[in-house]
Every structure is written in structure tokens, then in C-alpha cells.
Design a protein around this nucleic acid. Structure first.
Length: 420
RNA sequence: GUGGGCGUAGCUCAGUUGGUUAGAGCGUCGGUUUGUGGUACCGAAGGUCGGGGGUUCGAGACCCCUCGUCCACCCCA
């Protein structure tokens, strides 16, 4: 007898959590819509090559890709994130710039699951293509800040950095490699291996015993070109002008190779676990061109649903939405009355529930109580023979008989009073 | 991928140095006479003790393998 459960790193989002997820995405949509970002829906899998542009030195590409060959012999992969897909879409359809879009949905990375880290994980995010204005960077960052605040989060810290242009970046990587080569003895074997692949990533190490060698590494700031430095300065001025607080973190190197100039990350200080980054993003001025499109600057961010909701739990904000029913119909005459009355209540916009099967009056009352309904409408044999229904307030217990024809209107009026 | 912790009812967990028909709380369902909820009381259903092999007269407890899960590294959201 086979029994199944979800595959590692995946899980069911059950009620009432799923409703909270939906509320999360709706809130995000409303925040970014005010800034002119429009919804885009992308394929969940694409040609593997699209994602390889994320950088062949990144773990996301080298070991976490969910890739496979389809029946037509195409080598495709489940998307590990959505920025590459947006850029591919831009290159394919050539919309007029600036193109400002938002998205939500699942991404896939093959890695060991952990608190706040899953193989299938949801993100919401925005991308703005077609402008390298530093004030666009500011606006994009401000949207994320706005959203976190809107959820009620207070303990989210914004870290920003600039990785400069590609020339700055490669000169910095060389200097970094040279520095670490001179301190190999102080590095862990893992970091030595990382150094071979991507010297920037060594800065990410969380190992206690190499923190000092990492903290004394050269900083990116002294390698920035005049243009990149000026861009970064304007971003900071813009953030200051909006009153957005931030920490300049010169060790902030993000995991995807396409980033240049502005990069940022949001860290929750309310989370105890190792996964404290609730969102992050940056500028990727070369990505659209890499994907075969015209040279197009771009910037965006993604926010992780799971982690952000964990942060909400930790801060006790953004509670689950209410699932209270308006009316509960109790029918001890067989259920046909409940069937019809529930329908009538729903037709006037009231949520109505009932029990199924021939349950005792008491059992139905208990169910009514559990549903949180403000009113119970009771039809027993007495009511049925007189053509009335008993309307009972579940709040104060008061009840009265109302004719069957006017019971829906009566209850609707009563609930209207309660709401106003 | 590496290392460690943990897998007993739907959920949270007890199960003494291996020893009769595996327990509790919560939840679910039913009842406490005549048709009425939150409390209380009574009762019921529900478990191949993750799976497989082994040791033993006897294994939920011990050993091995395996799967799952959690945590850390790694990486990132």
C-alpha cells in the first residue's frame, strides 16, 4: 500500500496559512501598483541557458539547478529566480522603456532544506528596465521599505553597497584574490576552494575563525570608477532625502554574478536562525544584453515569502486573516432548508455555513459557535410548519422568529448594523 | 554536498535497567431525557511505535541499513 508525502524541501501551504500568503501578495501588489509597476507572469521553466547567465561561478547555477531534458530534447530548467526571466522577456518582446513590472510565484533550487529555506520557495519582486538613473534605484529600494513597513515589520535593516562597473569589479576581484592568496593559512579549506571559483564569495563566510582575515580584506569602495562612485553617492542622497535609514556594508556581495553598481539586502534582526535575509536585489545593467537583447540597464529586488512571514511571526505582526462566517444555518428538518437559505445569503454577499449530514441540534449549534458566525438561523420542524426561521444572535443569545421570506433581509440588516 | 539532533494517535508529547491487550492532553464524533453554542462531566473512534533487516524466550526501547525531518556549514529569499 503506497503512502505518499511531499518531496524534500517542498510542503503544502494549508489553510489558514494559504490565505495569509494570498494577503501578502495582494498587499505587495497594491504597494507597487501605486508606483506604476504592472503584473507579469513568466513561465516556471525556461531554456537552461537563460539561467546560466546568472553566472557560472554561482552555486545557484552550478549545483542548485533543477534542470532536465524534455521530450523534445530541449534542455530546460525550473527557474531559480525571476530576474533572468524578466530580462529574457524584455529581450524577446522589446517593450518601451522604462518597463516596470512586478511578479510573484514559486522558484526552485536544489539544496538542503532548512528553516526558511526550501527547494520550492515563493518570492515577490519588481524589476525596472531601461534607466540607469540612480534615483530609480532609490525608488525601487523605497518600495521594498514601504512594503516591509506596511506589513508592520520594524526590525528590518537595509544594507547597501556598490559593486561598481564590470571593470571596477574585476580589478577589485583581482585585488581580493591577491589579498586572500597571501593569507591562505588563515582561511578554511572551504574558503580556499571558494577563492578559486569566486573570490567575492569569500567575504560571505560566516566561519568564526576567519572573520578577522575577512574583515581586513580590501574594500570595494576604493576601486569604484568616478561614474560608479557618483552613482552610489546619489543613491545614498536619495535615500537620505526620503528618510530611509541604511547601513553601507562593503562586505555585501550578492550571490548572483550579474549585479553591478547598487546592491542591497534586507536583513531581519528578529529572526534567530541563520537565514536572516528577507529580501535583496540590485542593478544588473548587462543582463538584458547578455540574453541577446539591446544594451539595457535594470534594477530590481525579490522578497522571500517564507522568511518574511517568519519575520512577521517573530515580530507578531501581519496576523492571519479572519475566517469568520457571517451566518450559520441550522436545519434539523433534513437539510433542504439549509441548502436554500445558505444560497440566498451568499447571493446577497453574506458568507454562510452549515453542517452536513443529519447532525443533532446541539452538534449544529457547536459548529455554529466554532464558525465564529454572528448569527445562527435555525429551522426546525416547528419553524418549518409555521413558515418562519429563528434568528439567534451568537453574541448575546437573543433570538426571534422571522418569516422565511424576510429572514435574509433581516439578518443582512442586522449584520450591517454590527459592521457600521 | 558535509556534520549533528530527532522520528510513538490528526496535533503536542509520556512510555522507567528490553517483559502482559502501547498511554495522556488537545482536537474529532457521540452522550449528560423533552429542539439551542462557549464551561463541566461521561463515552467512542483513531496507532503496521517512519520503513526494512538483525540480536533476544521476548524489541517502541539495543545494533545495522534506509527514508523522512530539524539544525549548523555551504548558499541564498
Amino acid at each position: 500500500m503506497p503512502s505518499f508525502q511531499t518531496t524534500p524541501g517542498t510542503r503544502d501551504i494549508l489553510p489558514p496559512d494559504a490565505a495569509r500568503w494570498r494577503g501578502f501578495v495582494e498587499k505587495f501588489a497594491s504597494v507597487v501598483s501605486l508606483a506604476g509597476f504592472q503584473h507579469i507572469v513568466l513561465p516556471m521553466f525556461e531554456d537552461l541557458g537563460v539561467f546560466q547567465r546568472l553566472g557560472d561561478a554561482t552555486d545557484v547555477v552550478t549545483k542548485e539547478m533543477y534542470d532536465f531534458v524534455d521530450k523534445g530534447g530541449r534542455h530546460v530548467a525550473l527557474r531559480p529566480e525571476q530576474t533572468a526571466g524578466v530580462c529574457r522577456s524584455y529581450a524577446q518582446h522589446r517593450p518601451t522603456a522604462p518597463w516596470k513590472v512586478w511578479y510573484g510565484g514559486p522558484n526552485f533550487r536544489y539544496e538542503r532544506a532548512q528553516h526558511g529555506r526550501y527547494r520550492q520557495f515563493d518570492q515577490v519582486g519588481v524589476e525596472a528596465l531601461g534607466s540607469d538613473d540612480p534615483l530609480l534605484d532609490v525608488e525601487v529600494i523605497a518600495l521594498a521599505v514601504e512594503f516591509f513597513q506596511g506589513l508592520g515589520l520594524r526590525n528590518v535593516v537595509l544594507h547597501i553597497n556598490s559593486l561598481g562597473d564590470s571593470g571596477d569589479r574585476s580589478r577589485y576581484v583581482d585585488a581580493l584574490a591577491q589579498y586572500f592568496e597571501g593569507h591562505l593559512a588563515e582561511l578554511s579549506p572551504e574558503s580556499v576552494a571558494t577563492l578559486q571559483r569566486n573570490p567575492l564569495r569569500v567575504l560571505d563566510s560566516k566561519r568564526e575563525n576567519e572573520q578577522s582575515v575577512v574583515s581586513q580584506a580590501p574594500s570595494i569602495s576604493s576601486f569604484l570608477s568616478d561614474e560608479a562612485a557618483s552613482h552610489f553617492a546619489q543613491v545614498k542622497q536619495g535615500l537620505d532625502a526620503l528618510g530611509i535609514s541604511y547601513v553601507v556594508n562593503e562586505r555585501l556581495v550578492r550571490g548572483l554574478d550579474y549585479y553591478c553598481r547598487t546592491t542591497f539586502e534586507f536583513q531581519s534582526t528578529a529572526l534567530e536562525s541563520a537565514q536572516t535575509a528577507v529580501g535583496g536585489g540590485g542593478r544588473y545593467d548587462g543582463l538584458v544584453e547578455d540574453l541577446g537583447g539591446p544594451a539595457t540597464p535594470g534594477i530590481g529586488f525579490a522578497i522571500g515569502l517564507d522568511r518574511t512571514l517568519l519575520a512577521c511571526d517573530a515580530e507578531n505582526v501581519f496576523a492571519h486573516p479572519s475566517t469568520r462566517a457571517d451566518v450559520f444555518v441550522i436545519d434539523t428538518t433534513g437539510g433542504m432548508q439549509a441548502l436554500q437559505l445558505c444560497q440566498q445569503f451568499r447571493n446577497v454577499g453574506l458568507s454562510s455555513e452549515r453542517t452536513y449530514g443529519a447532525r443533532a441540534m446541539k452538534a449544529q449549534m457547536k459548529a455554529a459557535d466554532k464558525s465564529g458566525a454572528s448569527f445562527a438561523v435555525i429551522i426546525g420542524t416547528d419553524e418549518l410548519s409555521q413558515g418562519v426561521a429563528t434568528v439567534k444572535s451568537m453574541v448575546d443569545g437573543h433570538q426571534e422568529e422571522i418569516s422565511l421570506e424576510s429572514v435574509v433581509g433581516h439578518v443582512a440588516a442586522q449584520i450591517g448594523k454590527v459592521i457600521s
